[in-house]
Simulated scan of single mutants.
Amino acid sequence: MITSLLDGNKRFVAETFEKDREYFEALAKDQRPTVLWIGCSDSRVPVNTITGTKAGEIFVHRNVANIVATNDWNLSAVLEFSINHLNIPDIVICGHYGCGGIHALDAPHGDDKYIPVWLINAYKAKERVDEKIHALQIEVPQEQRMKLIVEENVRLQLEHLQEYPFVKKAMNEKILNVHGWVYDMSTGQIRVMKSHKNR
């Protein structure tokens, strides 16, 4: 696989880079993305591919289950750089159906130490969905329940995002919008769950 990656890079240089050399030379000097994408690390959700965007258009942060944790220094630095230095006007939190991280909320693996701790940041989404199902006293198929938890997790992470004081400040100053999306791998479509638009 490693060899195929390097071969792929050679094809990229010959077929893409050389044909659009001016664009890539400009990118090498400066980046001006207009969206910060906080998504899942899942290999089946390639950001530029599913959004039809080019290199340099989206600033990307990915982790297991597209979580926004206020004690995550990596994400905190990404957010700060995005808002204070790149002046990015839109943040998208994008989950996806079939997320392994969300499935792990139900069935953590016994040998895992870090994944369960990380997923604490998504557990409330599972609780909310299960409480609603219980209150309605209805039977919900497991696959549909998982989809509901994926959607609720996006809403939950939007809440976590707004716990960052500088994010809230930028939203109040109407220079930042935040959006919650879910990608459906079975259709290729993105579903808009929630948006906080200030303009």
Rank of each mutant, 00 (worst) to 15 (best):
P33R: 05
Q162E: 09
R199S: 09
K169A: 03
A69L: 02
E143D: 11
L27N: 07
K197C: 11
H61T: 06
E25Q: 13
E159D: 07
R62K: 15
N121W: 00
E173M: 02
H96T: 05
M1N: 07
A107H: 15
E131S: 06
I67H: 10
G95N: 06
L79N: 12
E80Q: 15
G95Y: 12
R44E: 05
L161K: 01
I175W: 07
A170C: 02
N84A: 15
R191I: 04
W118P: 03
A69H: 08
V192L: 15
D90E: 14
N9P: 06
L105M: 14
C94V: 07
I93W: 08
V167W: 06
E80R: 11
F17M: 03
D7Y: 09
A170D: 04
N87Y: 11
I38F: 07
P116I: 10
V78F: 15
V192Y: 01
V45G: 04
W118R: 02
R145C: 00
F166Q: 03
D111Y: 13
E131D: 14
E18W: 00
A125I: 00
E57G: 04
H96D: 14
S76F: 13
R21P: 03
I38C: 06
I88L: 09
R199G: 15
Q189W: 00
L75D: 06
G100S: 13
G110I: 02
S41F: 10
L79E: 14
E152I: 02
K194R: 14
I138K: 14
I2E: 12
A125L: 03
S76T: 12
V178R: 02
E151L: 01
L119N: 03
G39M: 03
N153D: 09
Y183V: 11
I120H: 09
I102H: 10
K54E: 12
T49Q: 14
I175L: 07
A170S: 10
E15I: 01
V60S: 08
R11M: 09
H179L: 07
K19N: 13
I2P: 02
Y97S: 08
E25G: 00
Y123L: 08
G100V: 11
R11D: 14
K169P: 02
T70Y: 11
G100D: 13
P165E: 07
L119I: 04
K29F: 05
I2G: 06
A104S: 15
N48Y: 00
W181K: 10
A69P: 06
G188P: 11
K124M: 05
M146S: 08
W181R: 01
F81Y: 15
N48H: 12
G180L: 09
Q157P: 09
R145G: 00
N198G: 04
